[in-house]
Design a binder for these strands. Structure first.
Lengths: 336, 336
DNA sequence: CTGAAAGCGCTAACAG
DNA sequence: CTGTTAGCGCTTTCAG
């Protein structure tokens, strides 16, 4: 691999001159510059990224850290953050935190291989985040309420989302409502569930243990939780799935059991993934402002990178998307 | 930020000792090691990633380069490659090539910020790939038939896929078959289309220009191409969508126009994304062996990294997934 | 404008 | 086992 030294030699100039020419500095005559560029071309010279980063101690890159790079939910988020990065002249890379504390993601945080990070990965501990963040390394977390030096969070109001979804079901006349939950270590899930509980209590409705099943936020989980509920024999009048993925699985289970949605049972999801509107029936759900939250997180990160003042925590509101998976048992506009 | 020098000083040992202790080398006494580790903890010392990479001139990281990190199609691929990387003790990062030649992805290739890459991104030119690849930097391309020094490809047999899909439609008794194509710069699309053409010619069926529309491989594209076809008034008996995403859009357009699938028209997709089976009706499609191709690409990359011999090109076969979006007009088992 | 020289933080000989 | 030393490839003063 040719180095800048080789280029300088071939072009017959000093090392520094070559460096300046290569980075487009204006203190080099056009003629010399051309000579250097030509030499570089001939040698198929490529800057060595690390050397540059090491010297500059800046990478011009931010990382987006996700538990799992796959999954439809993340798509929009990735895109919105990428856009912000691009407009700020930064690169963005996505790393998975699969593997927990030994993952690529954690290494990137610890070893500061990027200039800052946006994190949405439950399997990274608070400690790691707190430890890695700092003045010179801003982090924006999106999945918990953590703050610290160089560490802020932007969140979606999940509690309110859970409340809204449940309230909507109740207002439609449903009295028995199941909640299919996500993983227990997910603060989002806990909040959605809390919102569900608040709405239930407010309406003096009982929350039954047999109708509180775990689906781990994945399709198969929703499917088997629903199957299990069906096997119990006693179905609620509505099911609130902690996220859309689980609702999709649930829909399948219901269909297989010849239970019609929304005629026999109503279901509501959470997230509003792209797919939701293509389901049969189109899924009523709670929209997460993915684009907004991604953009916001991105913008905040760059503000921190530029040493501007930002708040410690941001909360975005959700929106209920009415589609066709919930049956209105009683006319809309009732109290309680 | 504390450096290894500070750690060594605090621990009262030499620089190299600290380095050895920190990397878990066995030539350091447990006692000294503990001292060093303790000092590191106190200083909240973190290795500087670049310095290490620069010195080692190895990153232990591979990159997966995709046009767009979002999109359901990639999810499985990402996962399978990530798995392979993990088992090989490597990290994987995903970069988007959004921005073409100026993108993060191209920078990573050019500046060799990783040890090797798997590329599935049409907007990166052959030249860039050829130039970046080499003995010390293996690349596996998945979206074109390019080979070169340190550059191999693994592909899915798209032509055969296109042929199979079309043949299936013809065998089912369909005579007028439209093809909704992807972007013109996609070699996959070209191949699928070629397969379509071959099957049509073989059956002496005519391919009409008015039934060859572009949908750019995206949902909205499939939607508007279908709408356009509907506006023309003359519908074919079957539509072959170049990928499932476009078929989803098409399905929506058809539904809006009260055209029933598969009663009024049959449709077939390509890819077999997760969603396909959840559609109404479940989509008949051509399955791409995403998991297999991802794993294969990953394995090959690691073989190259280990200087093992590999072939230049690999081709995986597709599989037709019969679901409910194609109507059998004539009994199955006919000739031609 | 150009050239020499000093490191960025780390690893890995090499000689005690 | 420990300490000294020489760079990895690049940027960037600082004098010519």
């Amino acid at each position: 691999m040719a180095t800048i030294k080789d280029v300088a030699k071939l072009a017959g100039v000093a090392l520094s001159t070559a460096s300046y020419a290569l980075s487009g500095d204006s203190k080099v005559s056009t003629k010399t510059k051309d000579k250097v560029l030509e030499a570089a071309r001939q040698l198929n010279y490529r800057k060595n990224g690390f050397a540059m980063d090491l010297k500059r101690s800046r990478t011009n890159t931010i990382a987006l850290i996700l538990t799992d790079l796959s999954g439809p939910y993340y798509s929009e988020l990735i895109r919105s953050i990428q856009d912000v990065a691009l407009t700020n002249g930064y690169d963005m890379i996505a790393c998975s935190s699969m593997g927990g504390q030994d993952s690529t993601a954690v290494r990137f945080l610890r070893e500061k291989r990027v200039d800052g990070a946006i994190v949405l990965a439950q399997n990274i501990t608070d400690d790691t985040l707190l430890e890695s963040a700092g003045d010179r390394f801003p982090i924006v977390v999106m999945d918990r309420e953590l703050t610290g030096s160089g560490l802020i969070n932007v969140r979606v109001d999940s509690e309110h989302g859970g409340y809204t979804a449940t309230k909507y079901l109740i207002d439609a006349g449903h009295q028995t409502i199941a909640y299919i939950s996500g993983p227990s270590n997910s603060s989002d899930n806990a909040l959605r569930y809390q919102g569900y509980l608040r709405a239930m209590h407010e309406a003096n409705l009982e929350e039954k243990a047999k109708w509180r099943l775990g689906g781990n936020f994945v399709r198969e989980g929703g499917y088997s939780a629903t199957k299990m509920m069906m096997m119990q024999g006693d179905m609620p009048s509505a099911i609130f799935y902690g996220n859309d993925e689980m609702a999709i699985g649930g829909l399948k289970a219901l269909e297989e059991g010849n239970i019609s949605v929304p005629n026999d049972i109503s279901i509501i999801g959470f997230d509003d993934i792209q797919l939701a509107e293509y389901l049969t029936p189109p899924l009523t759900t709670v929209r997460q402002p993915k684009h907004e939250s991604g953009s916001l997180a991105g913008h905040l990160l760059f503000q921190m990178l530029n040493k501007e003042e930002v708040n410690e925590a941001y909360k975005l509101t959700i929106e209920l998307i009415e589609r066709a998976s919930v049956q209105q048992l009683i006319p809309m506009n009732n109290e309680k």
